[in-house]
Design a binder for these strands. Structure first.
Lengths: 225, 225
DNA sequence: CGCAACCTTATTGTATACAAATAACGACAG
DNA sequence: CTGTCGTTATTTGTATACAATAAGGTTGCG
């Protein structure tokens, strides 16, 4: 994808991730075109792409809105992600090279250090966590699976979850990653798959807890303010 | 999606399914626009959509070609489809209404009749088979899963496989569907999932056998001709 | 006061012209 | 004869104007 449409894609996607474009907000092609400094044509292309990746959603009358997730939809997305990433881990366990296992270990050590820093460094955690999962996906050696997961992993949700992670939760991620690495060293697909599924499932509960806490805080703020 | 781009989508998709546009063939936007009677703009939109559905593929230099599958890619697609449709069957088994089970049974009887007709009626088989799977997917009640499977089930492949099905294979599909129905009546997710996975896996082997036979025939034709 | 048909305005869809990029081709050097 | 460079032709990308459609607001009627 060449200059303008790629730029529009990144710009809009970034704005959604940053929360500049809030969930539920309507997106107007012309307005986006202005704010990206391109014409509507590449904006439309970007929107279609963001739609397949579930960043935005279109109504029956072709209007586009930033996706606003219901808890059910999020649980469903996590369930599918667990299944697919579990499958990826199983495949990877049989194929992964020793060097890649070492890279996994290295990224996971960075995650441990991020957990132990004062205060914990979410950005570093997110970065190495992303890379950790990317290595596994690549080791699974299935372009199709990679493409599928690309439409499932909802970065806005991952982001919101991880930003709320406390030290315990990051250390728990670290521990689960370590177990995954053990499964890879043994080339045990069942083990790897089970650990990965559990890992994703825990992430879902972390998300749900964080979300509920946020709701409680909001209500408290409204009551006091 | 409104008139022109929807029309372009159906037109191009249909041409690929009919084999008018052959695997590996390059698609030129202007040419397609002429043959659809619309401008390039909606054609481009249709192509992007067909790309996400894997009907076409784009090179790094943005040229578009009708997808030409390698056997590895097909096996991978079948594996993912087995996993996802198995999951759908498990979900459906817990949620499906009695009426839907009766509809499944009815469609499957039509499949049996198609198998017993002289000669076997592939078109009828395909139609009811599609509907059978669609009912299950809908009963699973997960839009996300439906969307995912939409990008996995490769109609050109299903078509090519089913057209080669002999009576035995259609009857085998019928028998597997019957077992699926039994699992649904018992609301047994594990059973339903296992049967579905086996069903898809058998379809893969049917495809591979048909493909290999086709190869052998082609070679024989070249040797004789 | 409600609501329904109409009109106005906002927004998306499509066509087309032109710009940019890439592949195809051929000439020339080694 | 082969490979590389440059030129041309083909193809895709982008901007823009205009058409079609849907939303919102207004007026008139029950």
């Amino acid at each position: 994808m060449s200059k303008a449409s790629e730029h529009a894609y990144r710009h809009i996607r970034g704005a959604i991730l940053e929360g500049i474009l809030a969930p539920g907000e309507q997106l107007r092609e012309e307005h986006l075109a202005d704010s990206c400094g391109v014409s509507r044509t590449p904006v439309r292309e970007a929107l279609r792409r963001l739609e397949t990746e579930h960043f935005v959603r279109r109504t029956d009358s072709q209007r586009t809105f930033v996706t606003d997730w219901s808890m059910d939809e999020i649980e469903e997305a996590f369930a599918l992600r667990g299944m697919l990433e579990g499958h990826a881990a199983a495949r990877a366990s049989c194929r992964i090279a020793l060097g890649d296992i070492e890279r996994l270990a290295s990224h996971n050590q960075s995650i441990r250090r991020a957990a132990e820093s004062q205060p914990i460094n979410s950005t570093i955690f997110l970065e190495h966590n992303r890379e950790f999962h990317a290595i596994i996906l690549q080791a699974a050696g299935s372009d199709r699976l990679t493409a599928l997961l690309g439409t499932i992993i909802e970065q806005p949700i991952v982001l919101r979850t991880a930003r709320r992670y406390d030290r315990d939760q990051v250390l728990r991620s670290f521990a689960e990653h370590e177990e995954l690495i053990l499964a890879f060293r043994r080339h045990d697909p069942d083990w790897a798959e089970a650990v990965m599924k559990a890992h994703i499932r825990r992430a879902f509960h972390a998300y749900r807890d964080a979300f509920q806490n946020a709701l409680v805080r909001d209500e408290a703020r409204q009551a006091t303010g």
